[in-house]
Every structure is written in structure tokens, then in C-alpha cells.
Amino acid sequence: MTERSLKLANRPAVVVAMVLFAVAAVTYWDASQMTARATYGMGANAASYFICLFLAVLGVGHLLTAFQTPAIEAEDADWKAIGGIAIALSGLVGSIWLGAGFTLGSTLLFAFTARAFGRKSLVVDLAIGAFMGLVIFLLFNKLLSLALPQGPFERLF
């Protein structure tokens, strides 16, 4: 009995427990900093404290399971593919951030996602992505008059 409880059987559960405790701590800190007070009834920090407690209880729950039930075997993951999508998403965020426009962003997003799924011909995918992005952009800006982020390229239209 003691032997079993000493053996760590579920590493992910411990990690989740730590994350839960950390989030609970941040929430507690945030709630303790609040200045606005409700004159009647409960303040805005009541919900924060409640959820903080909830998170802490779940953290304890995860710690308990970590020593009792073995982890579910996580499957092998293709980290290269994950990286590909990460590049794709950063391409989009980056081009919006730097003001390079929606079309470039969605071109990068499309092409690198396709690459993550095993496509080899990047140029073809870039072309498809660019075409798609441009059509969407024109549809929104011209037909629906909803301004998607513009870069130098979009200003040509």
C-alpha cells in the first residue's frame, strides 16, 4: 500500500496539478489586488476566490490520481508537423502585427499548414493561399465593406 502511493504513476497529472496551483495562485493574487468595492452584496473578487478554491481542489485531485492511476499512454506525436502549424500561425500573427496585411498572413498560414500535413510543393501551396487570401480580402473589403487588415499589397486595390 505504502509502496504504491510512493510511486509516481502519472507524470502528466502532476504537471496539470502544478499548472492548476499556479493559476489558482495568480487568481488569488489578482483578486487581492482589486480596489473596486460593491456597496451592496458581493464584490467582483468573490467569484475569483471561488474559482481559485475550485482550481486548488482540482489540483489536489490531480495529485491524488497521479499516485494511484497510471497515465493514459499518450500516442507518439509528429512534432515536426506541430512545428509546421506553429510556423503557420506565427506567420499569420506576425504579418498582422507588422502590418503586412491579411493576404500575406493567410498565404503563410495556408501553405505551412499544408506542409505540416505532408505536402511537398510549397510554391503551389503559397500560390493557392495567396489566391484564397486575396479573394477573401476583396470579398470583405469591397463587397461587404468590412475592413480586414491591410498591408502594402492590399492598398494596391
Binding site: 502585427w97 495556408f110 501553405a111 499548414t113 500535413f117 505532408g118 501551396d125 487570401g133 480586414l148
Partner: peptide
């Protein structure tokens, strides 16, 4: 094909977000 399907999903999904609120 999966690569294009998911590429398309991601483009449209992010477009929906950008259209509602174009913020980084």
C-alpha cells in the same frame, strides 16, 4: 486532400476572428 482541407479551415477560422476584431 487533408493538407488543403486543414489549411483552408485555419485560414477561414482566423479570418472569422480577424473580421470580428482585427487585433493581434
Amino acid at each position: 486532400p487533408l493538407p488543403w482541407l486543414y489549411g483552408g479551415i485555419l485560414v477561414f477560422a482566423s479570418m472569422g476572428t480577424i473580421a470580428a476584431n482585427p487585433s493581434v
